[in-house]
Nucleic acid binder design. Structure first.
Lengths: 213, 213
DNA sequence: TAGATTGTTAATCGATTAACAATC
DNA sequence: TAGATTGTTAATCGATTAACAATC
């Protein structure tokens, strides 16, 4: 079903809730009210209750939310415990950094393939994984039930790479290339546009410096 | 002044406009209408005209926008040509990747310092820059007019690092650590929360897979 | 001039906040 | 029970879209 149609505004707040709930668990705190969670996250208590109620009534009047329970429920909603076979395409600086990002395994990414078209890196082993030629990408994706492709190539070719991933069964793209990828409606793309992020910082910084004078 | 108060929704679209304008220039296209730009970016023509008019009337009735002029104006607004002395704190995988990110220099970042508290990396040279002990951060920031700090440390200590940066004159933080940093109102923070991005992908992917069945 | 397209105002839509009855 | 806090509806706010007069 999933008829729900959760707005992206809500979706982007979920990981933050989850993060603070994990912190509360570390501190051994058992219960939390929407107001307290609001103070932590910076969202209003009202918004938090609205957000959570998109998925169900996890709280209890007069008490608040059970931290562990809410964390587990959110984890299920986000799909934390789902494991997806994944590949990285482009093992330059960024691709290598992500390959070695230990946290990957803990957030559902089972990284089993690295690809590059540069003959100098093809054949190398990085983070225990052999780098294959991008020519082999399609076959590999199909044969290994790859669900997520992590694109760390330059923008040139990133659409073609995406097409190969999608044609062979990938359903999610984590895109670090500075391009807007076209995918069918049953494939999801999450962009990390570092240059745009930096431009945003630049804009805000310039505004702030001007205002300050 | 900057009284303007541009909404973040608008701010986050600016880099995308800029990116497509650069692409149009590469293709030697001289003029573009809000409708054409809308087709490229996925925004509505109306929204684009509204956005741009926050900053001035760059277009001409019956003609559209001059690509080069609009790109230059947007560049000025974003502050593309401003150069800021910057440091990276934390030279693990991600910090090293960003250090070697060649694009940095082209988007206003003059990277002149690397810091880490791990004695094994202090003293090394990465991308031509010596890694210093984090103990030296405060002095370095003050003495070298550092305006931007790029935080690539784990979340532990990222607030303390931020405090040191801010106390010594930094005005912008590009934050890759999974923490929400507290800063004075004249300091801006741009977050790149990779885990949250991945959680978002996970949520969308799970929803999409469920819907598909 | 006629056609095109802006800049800008008004209308709509969606998201956030406020309020409060329900209830633990 | 009394106090606290949820779930949920209604009110508000802000952002997007539509419309169109101005004008190149």
């Amino acid at each position: 079903m999933g008829k729900s149609k959760i707005s992206m505004a809500v979706v982007r707040r979920l990981p933050k809730y989850y993060r603070y709930l994990c912190e509360l668990i570390e501190k051994d705190i058992k219960r939390v009210s929407s107001q307290e969670l609001g103070k932590l996250t910076g969202f209003t208590a009202s918004q938090i209750r609205q957000d959570l109620n998109n998925f169900g009534g996890f709280g209890q009047q007069g008490y608040g939310y059970n931290v562990t329970e809410l964390k587990n429920e959110l984890g299920k909603i986000i799909g934390i415990s789902e494991i997806y076979n994944s590949v990285i395409i482009g093992v330059g600086n960024l691709g290598q950094a992500i390959t070695n990002y230990r946290r990957l395994g803990r957030v559902g990414i089972n990284l089993i393939g690295l690809f590059d078209k540069n003959p100098k890196v093809v054949g190398l082993t990085i983070g225990g994984i052999k780098v294959r030629d991008t020519d082999e990408l399609g076959d590999f994706v199909r044969e290994n039930n790859i669900k997520i492709g992590i694109i760390c190539t330059p923008k040139e070719g990133s659409q073609e790479t995406t097409d190969i991933l999608v044609e062979n069964g990938a359903k999610g793209i984590w895109n670090f290339s500075p391009a807007d990828l076209k995918v069918p409606s049953d494939v999801v793309v999450e962009n990390v546009h570092l240059t745009e992020s930096l431009f945003t910082l630049s804009f805000l910084l310039n505004q702030s410096l001007e205002d300050g004078q």
